[in-house]
């Protein structure tokens, strides 16, 4: 690869906009527009754990799709390892696919109910020979029994399904893992286990992680850097210690004041 492997930031986002057009509400006049992202900029340093926190509707999911090259920005730039990805057609994003992977939110919806677990996990590898060998390694890495590969997703609990999802994301040996609300659909005990697993894997495989969540306590627990999003904009970003210790933006202060402590978040109920 021609990229500079020593560059400080793996993912670099500059002035990113994404505008959705709604269907016409009247025959005349323009179609209404929704600005999901309004000029977002940030850099994810190699080896860091970058948290993106915001309420639902703040543009987090849109951002995840753009980072993974699953959608195109309306304006702005996204670079991965110094290479622009927002201008490439999907079939030329092969380099990105093997180096950046996503763990999705819904542990049921992100696994095809009609596929066996080994086919799900090996999917990013295509028809590569030796892919089932790799599946065996991955099942072990995420603490699932070796015979899990022959079974179907509905035979597993929510936490186990999220382990399957994580194993799939790790299959092509990515350097960057984007986790989109990976624990918000899980119950409390399982949530802590999955967070621990993610932390372990990030450590073991020297991953860079982009962790998206609406939950400040979880982000504080997992990440070293954080960006706070509100209505499509980043209102504040910096090291977790600084942002949580001395929040500068009123919205951040409000969020932190409203959030329960980590122990409360890990034991209390929560809305999706």
């Amino acid at each position: 690869m021609s990229d500079n492997p020593r560059s400080e930031s793996v993912v670099s986002v500059r002035d990113l906009w994404r505008t959705y057009r709604r269907p016409r509400t009247s025959l005349f006049g323009p179609r209404p527009e929704v600005h999901a992202l309004r000029g977002v900029s940030f850099d994810v340093a190699r080896g860091s754990r970058f948290g993106i926190v915001g309420e639902s509707g703040s543009g987090k999911s849109t951002l995840v799709r753009l980072l993974a090259g699953l959608d195109r920005p309306s304006a702005g730039e996204i670079s991965f390892d110094g290479r622009r990805i927002d201008t490439l057609p999907e079939r030329r994003l092969g380099f990105l696919r093997s180096r950046l992977q996503v763990v999705f939110q819904d542990p049921m919806g992100s696994l095809d109910p009609r596929m066996r677990v080994r086919d799900i996990i090996s999917e990013p590898l295509g028809r590569q020979p030796g892919r089932f060998e790799r599946v065996r390694e991955l099942l072990e890495a995420v603490d699932l029994p070796a015979d899990a590969g022959r079974r179907y997703p509905h035979q597993f609990s929510g936490g186990q399904r999220q382990r399957i999802s994580i194993a799939r994301a790790l299959a092509p040996r990515p350097g960057v893992l984007v986790a989109d609300e990976p624990v918000s659909a899980l119950d409390v005990l399982v949530r802590a286990q999955i967070l621990d697993l993610l932390a372990d894997l990030v450590e073991r495989y020297a991953l860079t992680m982009v962790f998206v969540s609406h939950d400040l306590a979880v982000v504080r627990h997992v990440c070293d850097t954080v960006a706070v999003m509100r209505q499509g904009e980043i209102v504040e970003q910096g090291p977790v210690r600084d942002v949580y210790g001395e929040p500068r933006h009123p919205y951040t202060r409000e969020l932190i004041a409203a959030a329960p402590s980590l122990s409360a978040a890990l034991s209390g109920p929560e809305e999706g």
Binding site: R97, Q101, F104, G109, S110, D112, A171
Partner: peptide
């Protein structure tokens, strides 16, 4: 569905998604 998103993020082609999912 998210599993189709995951397949695309895994670099799979349209034909693969049509046939497998």
């Amino acid at each position: 569905t998210e599993y189709v998103l995951a397949a695309r993020a895994g670099g799979r082609s349209r034909a693969w998604i049509a046939g497998r999912h």
